[in-house]
Measured scan of single mutants.
Amino acid sequence: MDPFVVLVLCLSCLLLLSIWRQSSGRGKLPPGPTPLPVIGNILQIDIKDVSKSLTNLSKIYGPVFTLYFGLERMVVLHGYEVVKEALIDLGEEFSGRGHFPLAERANRGFGIVFSNGKRWKEIRRFSLMTLRNFGMGKRSIEDRVQEEARCLVEELRKTKASPCDPTFILGCAPCNVICSIIFQKRFDYKDQQFLNLMEKLNENIRIVSTPWIQICNNFPTIIDYFPGTHNKLLKNLAFMESDILEKVKEHQESMDINNPRDFIDCFLIKMEKEKQNQQSEFTIENLVITAADLLGAGTETTSTTLRYALLLLLKHPEVTAKVQEEIERVIGRNRSPCMQDRGHMPYTDAVVHEVQRYIDLIPTSLPHAVTCDVKFRNYLIPKGTTILTSLTSVLHDNKEFPNPEMFDPRHFLDEGGNFKKSNYFMPFSAGKRICVGEGLARMELFLFLTFILQNFNLKSLIDPKDLDTTPVVNGFASVPPFYQLCFIPV
Rank of each mutant, 00 (worst) to 15 (best):
F451K: 15
Q193L: 10
S393L: 01
N196I: 11
E85T: 08
K375Q: 12
T55A: 14
I141V: 13
S23H: 04
N277V: 11
M255N: 05
M1I: 00
G27Q: 14
S242M: 11
A149Y: 04
K185I: 07
R73N: 06
E203M: 07
G62F: 00
I362Y: 13
V113S: 15
E438I: 06
K420M: 03
Q484I: 06
F456P: 02
L57C: 08
I387Q: 00
T66P: 02
P30L: 02
S24A: 08
E325L: 11
S24I: 15
V113M: 14
F219H: 09
F239K: 15
G439P: 14
S254C: 08
L287P: 00
S336H: 12
E285S: 13
L413R: 01
G171C: 13
I88Q: 08
K432G: 10
T371G: 06
L268Q: 02
A350D: 00
R357D: 00
K158V: 07
A173G: 08
N56F: 09
D89W: 05
T386G: 07
E415D: 14
H316C: 05
M443H: 12
S23E: 13
K160W: 09
F401N: 01
Q193P: 12
M339V: 15
E274A: 09
G343V: 12
P163Q: 10
C435G: 01
I359H: 02
K200V: 14
N286H: 08
R108K: 15
E199K: 15
I434D: 13
N418H: 14
W20P: 05
G27T: 11
T348G: 01
G416D: 14
H99I: 09
G137V: 10
N41S: 06
F194C: 05
S53D: 04
I182G: 01
G332S: 07
M74Q: 06
T304W: 08
E246N: 15
P63D: 11
C179Q: 07
D2R: 12
V5A: 13
F419V: 08
I434N: 11
N455G: 07
R261K: 09
L311E: 02
T348Q: 00
P471H: 10
I182F: 05
I362M: 13
W20N: 06
R261I: 05
L54Y: 06
